[in-house]
């Protein structure tokens, strides 16, 4: 039986957040480096920032009572038990 704790998925999600942050900063850098920091681009950046904050807040508020140490079974031999029997 292969089991991993639930917090592994939380770490994967946090890793994804880091990648998201890096790419967002690259986008902002592109806007500044090409002299495109106008009202339009500022409002758009603000919109993305606002949506990101809302999403992260909603994620945190939906997951307060989770026991992250709960084991998640990835593979159980009993799942394959009847597979090769005649």
């Amino acid at each position: 039986m292969i089991q991993i704790p639930l917090y592994v998925f939380l770490f994967v999600y946090l890793l994804f957040l880091v990648v998201f942050l890096i790419f967002s900063l690259i986008h902002v850098y592109h806007i500044i480096a090409t002299a495109s920091l106008t009202l339009t681009s500022f409002l758009f950046c603000f919109l993305i920032f606002f949506l990101t904050i809302i999403t992260l807040y909603a994620t945190m508020s939906l997951l307060p009572d989770i026991d992250w140490k709960t084991p998640v079974t990835l593979l159980d031999a009993s799942w394959l038990g009847g597979l090769f029997s005649p």
Binding site: L6, F9, L10, Y13, F16, L17, F20, F23, S24, H27, H30, I31, T34, S36, T40, S41, F44, I48, L51, T52, T55, L56, A58, T59, L62, L63, I66, W68
Partner: peptide, 27 residues
Amino acid sequence: AMLVLFASAYFLAIYLFFFTRFIEFYL
């Protein structure tokens, strides 16, 4: 928990995609 995390990652990926398309459009 996995559905919430996946949905959150999906939304953030959409924002990134939208931001990238805006960069390509505006720059």
